[in-house]
Simulated scan of single mutants.
Amino acid sequence: MATSSSDEGAAADSSWVEKYLEHVRVERRLAPRTLELYSTHLADLARRAGEAGLDLLQVQPAHVRRWMAQMHGAGREPRGIALVLSCWRSFYRWLGHQLAVPANPVQDVHAPKAGRPLPKALSVDDAVRLAELKNADADPWTESRDRAVVELLYSCGLRVSELVGLDAQPGKDARGWLDLDGAEAHVMGKGSKRRSVPVGRQALAAVRAWLEVRDSCAALPAARLRDPASSAALFIGARGTRMTPQAIWALLRRRSHAAGLAAPVHPHMLRHSFASHVLQSSGDLRAVQELLGHANIGTTQVYTRLDFQHLARAYDAAHPRAHLRGDAPASPAPDKNKS
């Protein structure tokens, strides 16, 4: 009889999970990858409950805290635990709406705090080396476009979505565009918020050089007939269609390898480099916030930690009392002629 009861509980749990997954697929329209993760996290929840001799409807906060501690002890990162708890919390919130549980057992359970990682930024020398690279292996059309992409990302600190959304000319349907005469990029950032960012001299020159050859690719005319809207895009592929974020990632990987950099560069690394280098030079955190389009200055403050690392290295290299291992340069001998 116990086995039968256990089987019935497992079947009931499975039914609730299936109904919830159908709900988030239809009502919340979650992406397939997110649905897959939800299914995995809920299967793990059902397994843990079963091992504790519980149905999903019997889970209490103490059980959730114990399982969270087990995940943490097994080496799972706090961010990963937070995502699991978020899925479980959403599931029990839905069960509450179905009047299946009296309270949400995950509501007041929070993942361990994670140290905020520093953003990865290039050194000034590496950023300049990447921007000034002349790749002899690339055809002139591709080389001109790729150089303009790198210069614009590093000059303006754009997100990759903002970059690929740029049009060559302003228009009523444009998400963003460049004003070359005014030396400004007008972009649409997160939350559909628009902002204007100055464009540096080198980036302006690179974009102008790209625009001179942009329409010269032999494959473009036929592609434009198939997709006339692509003709507005500032950055296009060889088939004439607007470049995708994935294409920009691949472009930067190729270019960073050709430049001999130690690690592959991705678009957000150039955004981090822009912010870090501007802050190092100006010390104006509020200006960096505006340039990046951050709604909260707390998001921007992470770059002050990068700036402090830069200052600490300069201190270690220059200050006589910073050498702790007896490797300080010898002090000059006293001048015996001085009294």
Rank of each mutant, 00 (worst) to 15 (best):
T300G: 01
H323I: 06
A262F: 05
P245H: 06
S282E: 09
P329S: 15
R255N: 07
R239C: 02
H294P: 04
A312M: 08
D307G: 10
A262G: 11
R253D: 09
D316L: 14
A259L: 09
N296A: 12
A328H: 11
T300V: 00
Q246N: 12
L292V: 09
I297E: 08
A287Y: 06
L251A: 01
L251D: 02
R325F: 07
A317S: 14
L285V: 14
E290R: 13
A259S: 11
L291R: 00
I297Q: 07
G260H: 12
S273G: 12
A318W: 12
H272A: 12
H272Q: 11
L279Y: 02
D284Q: 09
Q280R: 13
A318E: 13
S256K: 05
A250D: 04
L285M: 07
R271S: 05
G326W: 03
G283K: 08
L279P: 01
A287P: 00
R286I: 15
G293W: 02
R325G: 04
R271A: 03
A275I: 05
G326I: 06
H277N: 12
P329N: 14
H272D: 11
R321G: 05
H257K: 15
R254P: 01
L261P: 04
Q309M: 14
R325E: 12
L279C: 07
H272P: 05
H272K: 10
G326R: 03
Q301N: 12
A322V: 05
F308C: 00
S256E: 04
G240N: 04
L261W: 06
Y315I: 09
A317T: 11
Q289Y: 01
L251K: 00
S273E: 11
A259R: 05
L285E: 06
L311A: 15
Q280Y: 06
L279W: 04
R239W: 03
F308S: 10
S331F: 01
S331G: 06
A287K: 04
G240W: 01
P245R: 05
H257C: 08
T244D: 09
A328G: 15
L252C: 06
A322R: 10
R286C: 14
A263D: 14
L306W: 04
W249D: 03
A263Q: 15
P267Q: 11
R253S: 00
